[in-house]
């Protein structure tokens, strides 16, 4: 459990560091990109559904897989669209 706590604390500091100098115009795309990254819950949803052995947990697990996939796919695609628009404005 201490290992997990160590990882958690270190990740907090990395999270603080990587975004501390973000420019204002990138606030929304960064939020959207981070939003896509927490879609990694899809990994958890797949693992949990992959061991489900009764109907209830299977249905709940599959629902989680579906929702998490929407989060991941939608998140990355919409972020890319935002950044595409920024590029157009600059040139």
């Amino acid at each position: 459990m201490i290992e997990l706590l160590t990882i958690f604390v270190l990740a907090v500091f990395v999270g603080f560091e990587v975004v501390s100098k973000v420019s204002t115009i990138l606030h929304t795309p960064l939020m959207s990109g981070a939003n896509a990254i927490h879609g990694v819950i899809l990994v958890g949803a797949i693992l949990i559904t992959g061991q489900a052995d009764d109907t209830l947990t299977l249905v709940l697990g599959l629902l989680a897989v579906f929702l998490a996939t929407v989060n991941v796919v939608g998140g990355f695609v919409v972020t890319d669209r935002m950044l595409e628009m920024f590029k157009g404005h600059k040139r």
């Binding site: 990882i7 990740a11 999270g15 603080f16 990587v18 960064l30 990254i37 990694v40 990994v43 693992l47």
Partner: peptide, 19 residues
């Protein structure tokens, strides 16, 4: 007990708070 979920979730939690 999955380290990837801990790292990725924490990254978003921390950077999201700062953001």
């Amino acid at each position: 007990g999955n380290t990837l979920l801990i790292v990725a979730g924490t990254l978003v939690g921390a950077s999201g708070t700062i953001l």
